[in-house]
Amino acid sequence: MFTSSEISEIQKLLTPAHKIVIISHYNPDGDAVGSSLGLKHFLSAKGLEVDVIVPNDFPKFLKWMPGAKQIIIADYKRKQAGEAIYNADVIFILDFNASHRSGNLVGPWLEKARAKKILIDHHQQPDDFDFVYSDVTIPATSQMIYHFIQELKAEDLVNKEIAECLYTGIMTDTGGFRFRSTSATTHRIIANLIEKGADPAMITSNTWDTNTVSRLQLLALILGRIEVIKDGKVAILWLKRDELKNLGFQKGDTEGFVNYGLSIMGTQVSAFFMEDLYDDFIKISFRSKDDVDVNQFSRNHFNGGGHINAAGGKYMKSIEETIEDFKMKIEQEEF
Score class of each variant (00 low, 15 high):
His25Asp: 11
Ala311Ile: 10
Glu333Asn: 03
Asn206Pro: 08
Ser35Glu: 11
Phe286Met: 05
Gly82Arg: 09
Lys251Gly: 10
Phe249Tyr: 15
Lys289Ala: 10
Ser214Leu: 15
Val228Leu: 12
Gly82Val: 03
Thr3Trp: 08
Leu62Met: 15
Asn27Met: 05
Lys79Asp: 10
Ser183Leu: 14
Ala198Ile: 06
Phe58Trp: 13
Lys12Val: 10
Leu166Trp: 11
Ala98Ser: 10
Cys165His: 06
Thr204Leu: 06
Val258Glu: 01
Trp64Glu: 13
Phe281Ile: 04
Gln250Lys: 11
Leu216Trp: 04
Thr3Gln: 03
Ile229His: 07
Ala140Arg: 08
Lys240Ile: 05
Lys153Arg: 15
Glu161Asn: 12
Ala235Lys: 03
Phe179Glu: 09
Phe177Trp: 08
Pro139Leu: 09
Gly266Asp: 12
Asn303Trp: 01
Ile71Cys: 04
His100Cys: 00
Phe96Cys: 04
Val33Arg: 00
Ser288Gly: 02
Ile264Ala: 00
Ala32Thr: 14
His122Lys: 14
His41Ala: 03
Asn104Lys: 07
Pro200Glu: 06
Ile20Glu: 04
Cys165Ile: 09
Asp75Asn: 11
Trp238Tyr: 12
Glu161Ile: 04
Leu223Tyr: 08
Lys40Phe: 00
Asp199Tyr: 01
Arg178Lys: 08
Asp291Leu: 07
Ala163Gly: 00
Trp109Leu: 12
Ile7Asn: 07
Lys46Ser: 04
Val292Cys: 02
Ile190Val: 15
Met144Ser: 05
Leu48Val: 03
Leu219Gly: 13
Asp135Arg: 02
Asn192Pro: 00
Leu244Pro: 11
Asn211Tyr: 11
Glu151Ser: 10
Phe273Met: 07
Ile222Cys: 02
Lys153Val: 02
Asn159Asp: 15
Asn211Phe: 09
Gly47Trp: 01
Asn97Glu: 15
Leu39Met: 09
Asp31Ala: 09
Ala98Tyr: 04
His25Ser: 09
Arg241Asp: 14
Ser285Val: 06
Pro59Tyr: 15
Lys314Asp: 05
Ser4Met: 13
Gly175Met: 02
